[in-house]
Amino acid sequence: MEGTVALDSPLSDASSDRLYRKITLRVIPFLFVSYVISFLDRINIGFAQLQMKQDLGFSDAIYGLAAGMFAVGYVLMEVPSNLMLEKVGARRTFSRIMLCWGAISSCMMFVSSPWQFYV
């Protein structure tokens, strides 16, 4: 116990303040931008609904099934993603998620049938 610092000492308060400031300045802005992009991506399918129904002839049932499949897939893929986070680190995981979502969103422009929309 000789070499330890008490939890309420000024040294630990100063270093914890520096740590929180560093986290706030580096991580929080990145997480905010990632959240906004994720939110826009999730609501994008809602905005596309009107055009898809009109241009591709999709019914409400087709759209509803695809939106439900999207939500279920989104939830199911979070568990493996979080397990990978522990193994490969946050930086690689965030990069992988952003690149995959961008590629999948870009592929939506090629949808012309209900089965392609489901996939």
Rank of each mutant, 00 (worst) to 15 (best):
V33P: 04
M69W: 10
S34H: 08
S12T: 12
G89I: 04
L65C: 07
L40Y: 01
S113I: 05
M69H: 07
V119T: 15
R26Q: 13
R42V: 01
L25V: 06
L31A: 10
S112I: 10
M98I: 13
S59V: 09
V72P: 03
I28E: 08
Y20L: 14
M77D: 02
D8T: 05
T93L: 10
F94A: 11
R92P: 05
A66V: 14
V33D: 03
V27N: 02
S34P: 00
L85M: 14
I23N: 06
S95F: 04
Y118S: 08
G46I: 00
S59M: 09
F58H: 10
W115L: 15
N44S: 09
R92V: 07
K87Q: 14
I104F: 11
F94S: 05
F39C: 02
P29N: 08
G89C: 07
Q51R: 08
R18H: 10
S16D: 13
S106G: 13
R91G: 07
M98G: 05
I97W: 03
A14R: 13
A103Q: 05
L76T: 06
L65F: 15
I23T: 10
R96K: 07
R91D: 13
V75M: 01
S15C: 05
G73Y: 03
I37M: 13
S15F: 11
P114Q: 06
K87A: 11
N44W: 03
M108Q: 12
T93W: 11
D55F: 01
I23Y: 14
S34G: 07
R42Y: 00
T93M: 15
T4M: 12
Y63C: 04
I45D: 02
D41G: 09
Y118K: 01
G46A: 05
V119M: 14
F39D: 03
M52G: 12
A71P: 04
S16H: 10
D41L: 01
